[in-house]
């Protein structure tokens, strides 16, 4: 018996176990043929959100600019950085500002995570807005996709509310006064205006009640509503297919 065969004999069972595990997790290999590629999309949880095949014109970068996908990516990025920030942040008017200050000056990682969260939030407002503009100019909201436009509009509103509720959390002069100005608009609503503002702020002015309300809205309520709408939005894109070139 040659040395090589002995080595093969020793390694082969463990390599087979490795292949079995890999195969059971990913099921398909690299997309060497269209058939394998199609099967991969069908059997992979993360890929099956896509249709199996798409119009070539619809995936041209200059057609969609990947804006919808980028909106979702930014949502994921904001979730990850946001969870990181939650480990350090206490939504109390006594501690919130110091928490953020400590994060910003304490360690480079903390500062970058906060910056990333902040700039990604601005980017997301812009990208979601551009996605909507793109869909309009291409008429991609027309039958059978009317209702998906409506869901998309709701997602834009949720994006704005997420950004606005996050604005307050650092508890600095910028956040408190921006939210004061923003919520002052609510009080002009006929009849229910002052009441709406009171409910929103949890009191007559921006204070501890407002901070905890905005915090819970920001980290739990709005993301969950957003995820629900996103699931429907993506599912409908999946079922209707991409609109494709004009």
């Amino acid at each position: 018996m040659s040395n090589q065969a002995e080595r093969g004999g020793l390694w082969e069972p463990s390599r087979q176990v490795g292949r079995d595990i890999w195969g059971s997790v990913f099921r398909r290999g690299l997309p060497t043929t269209d058939k394998v590629a199609a099967r991969t999309v069908l059997t992979n949880f993360f890929l099956h959100i896509h249709p199996v095949r798409v119009k070539k014109s619809a995936i041209r970068f200059s057609y969609s600019f990947c804006l919808g996908g980028l909106s979702f990516f930014l949502f994921l990025l904001l979730t990850v950085t946001g969870i990181f920030l939650m480990f350090y942040y206490v939504p109390s008017t006594d501690q919130a500002y110091q928490n953020i200050q400590g994060l910003q000056s304490g360690s480079p990682v903390g500062a970058v995570m906060r910056n990333l969260h902040r700039w990604s939030a601005h980017a997301m407002v812009i990208v979601v807005w551009l996605h909507m503009v793109r869909v309009f100019y291409q008429g991609a909201y027309k039958s059978p996709r009317q209702f998906n436009w409506t869901i998309g509009t709701a997602l834009l509103v949720i994006t704005l509310l997420l950004s606005f509720s996050g604005y307050l959390l650092p508890w600095d002069q910028l956040s408190v006064w921006a939210v004061t100005v923003g919520t002052n608009m609510a009080k002009y609503a006929p009849f229910l205006g002052p009441f709406t503002r009171y409910v929103l702020l949890g009191g007559p002015n921006v204070g501890q009640g407002t901070l905890i309300r905005f915090y819970v809205l920001h980290v739990a309520v709005l993301p969950l509503i957003g995820i629900l709408f996103m699931v429907i939005h993506f599912w409908r894109v999946r079922k209707d297919g991409f609109t494709g070139g004009l």
Partner: peptide, 12 residues
Amino acid sequence: KEDEVVVTYPYL
């Protein structure tokens, strides 16, 4: 040409 289709994975 606009109606040509490709597999989602890996193209998209």
